[in-house]
Design a protein around this nucleic acid. Structure first.
Length: 151
DNA sequence: GCCAACGTTGGC
DNA sequence: GCCAACGTTGGC
């Protein structure tokens, strides 16, 4: 799950403990939230539009998908005038803070790792803000992020 | 700040 | 249904 630190950082999630992952306005990402995410699922927290971009922590899905109220709020930046309360267009899940990585795994590091060559986030032109990660990719990223070794 | 890649919109 | 124009994402 991607977030720009100026909007919502891993530190913000740590402080809040739990927060609604609102503002997703892409249908494919919406579908992952609505149709794939289950309470208890773990997610990589990816920091985008930052230096460096990369995975900075772990979150846990803490609620079922529900309509994103910010899409219905005219005062909110995420307001979508086509979203109908009776037929919600945009969804969110709550997420809980799990872990902040001791060693954030930069996008460059993800790209360098042969074991992660098929990971969606390293593919060219890949912009989805919510995307699936395999169990193998997930554990590999944590392995990198928890490493304390020589550097 | 630039710009490539992608998604959406809307005229036709 | 095609596709040009436009807006957004997000790395660099």
């Amino acid at each position: 799950m991607k977030s720009e630190p100026e909007a919502f950082s891993i530190g913000d999630l740590r402080s809040a403990g739990r927060a609604p992952w609102d503002g997703v306005r892409n249908y494919q990402a919406r579908n992952f939230i609505r149709d794939q995410m289950k309470v208890g699922d773990l997610a990589l927290f990816y920091r985008s539009n930052a230096s460096p971009p990369g995975v900075v922590g772990v979150a846990r899905v803490a609620s079922a998908a529900r309509p994103d109220p910010t899409a219905l709020d005219p005062k909110h930046a995420g307001f979508d005038p086509r979203s109908d309360p009776q037929a919600p267009r945009w969804f969110l899940v709550d997420v809980e803070f799990v872990e902040e990585l001791a060693a954030p795994v930069s996008l460059a590091a993800l790209k360098q790792d042969p074991a992660l060559k098929d990971m969606l986030v390293v593919q060219k032109g890949q912009r989805l803000s919510v995307q699936p990660v395999t169990a193998g990719e997930f554990s590999r990223v944590l392995e990198l992020g928890r490493a304390t070794g020589s550097g």
